[in-house]
Simulated scan of single mutants.
Amino acid sequence: MDKSRVNLLEYLRSKTQVDLDTFDVTAVGAVGQCVDCTSNQYEYYTELAKPTRRDILEKTLEETARLHDLFPEVIFEELGVEVGAVLLAGKMVPGFTGNVHLMVNPKYAYSKDKVYANAKRFHHLFALIDPSYDRSRIVIKVPATWEGLQACRLLHKDGVKTLGTTLFCMEQAVLAGEAGCVSISPFVHRLKILVEPAGYKDPHPVYTLSGRAQRWYRQHGIRTMVKSCATSGIDELLQLAGIDALTIVPDDLRELERGYRDADEVAAMSIVEDVAAEEKTEYPSYIDDEAKYRADFEKADEGRAIEKTAEAIDIFCGYQDKAEEVIRKARK
């Protein structure tokens, strides 16, 4: 093969940590080993609803019945989704060297206390279901609302790792870093691009947010990792080469694995270094200033960031409902 051409997946892995965005166990190892594995309510619903995962669903019902008395604060179906997530995670973990990510109930996105309790419950469930599991490899995904990130602040003090998700602007990124999140997931596009019918076009993507956040953290000595997500197509992934990590769906990973391009062409596509070279931008501390944060967040990206965040949370809530319905029907 022409030495000037590179395999796209190998190139991307040389620049960026590659993570898998699914709880579909059949994808593990299909394109080589990824570092982390991430999930959300969409994954819990689709996996628990699959006929091929009937064994997981039956085990979920069995374990939820056994453990429900320990968690009377939540209904059976809600606990069942969390138990199912833990069982699904257990099937994924052997294929990864890094962390497994589980998302709190998005309906709690605007309650600090409920997000905190949900994160602690996930850790408790892991201990009860699989005592041998290394809980230092658990990262809890939390919507990047004021309340959610304040819960992350408390969880950080408890040694619980968190990731700020549904993140669309620098104001959220700054607060997440101050709250002690081990990572954030800036969305390049609205979440709708992953769940709407093919052909949906996001009119206002935020291509440079990941690079700006990464630059901010490095300038201020903040150890939060930037894990970009919600991309569309492999060109956007290549444009983000050099970011800390990319969360990639299986189809895009397979396309990257099959693809070859001119090395110089691919290297010229990355926008991360260009963003990193921009003039230093200052942001205030938000961690103890709710009023300032809310005012700035409301204006971010001409008001689109707060709207996109709310929309993404609503979409995840819809899949939470669908996942609970799978538990409810299976229980009858």
Rank of each mutant, 00 (worst) to 15 (best):
V35G: 01
Q172K: 13
R254H: 09
F71Q: 08
L209V: 12
A49N: 13
F316K: 00
T281S: 10
V115E: 00
L256K: 01
E325Y: 14
A241F: 03
E73F: 08
Y283V: 05
S39Y: 05
K161V: 02
R218W: 15
E78F: 11
L175V: 01
V139W: 00
V81K: 02
A119C: 13
S270I: 14
A230K: 01
Y110T: 07
Y11V: 13
V188F: 14
G242D: 02
G159Y: 14
D262E: 06
T26Y: 08
A117G: 15
S111Q: 02
K201S: 07
I138G: 02
N105A: 06
E62S: 10
V18Y: 13
R331D: 02
A310G: 00
M1Y: 11
Q17F: 03
V275S: 02
D202N: 14
K91W: 04
C34K: 04
C169K: 12
L209R: 04
L12I: 06
Y319T: 02
R153A: 11
E290K: 06
L237G: 00
S285K: 11
Y133H: 09
Q219E: 15
L12W: 09
S210I: 04
I184N: 01
Q17R: 07
L79H: 13
H68T: 06
C169F: 14
H101C: 07
T16C: 04
P72K: 12
R212M: 11
A312V: 05
A151M: 02
T281R: 15
H123Y: 12
L87D: 08
N40G: 00
F316Y: 01
D113V: 04
G242M: 08
V28Y: 09
E282G: 13
C34A: 14
D251W: 02
L155F: 08
D130N: 09
T52A: 14
V275L: 07
N118L: 03
G164A: 07
G180P: 03
R13S: 06
A30K: 10
R223V: 15
T145R: 09
F297T: 01
N118G: 12
K15F: 07
F187V: 03
K161Q: 04
M103H: 05
T247I: 03
T165M: 03
A30L: 10
V86M: 14
E298F: 15
L67M: 11
A291F: 08
T162C: 13
K227V: 04
F23D: 00
Q17I: 07
T26F: 12
V93C: 13
R331N: 11
A263P: 00
D134C: 09
M103R: 02
P203A: 07
H189T: 14
D252P: 00
I306P: 00
I327W: 01
V83K: 05
L9K: 02
Y42W: 09
Y116R: 06
G90A: 05
S285D: 12
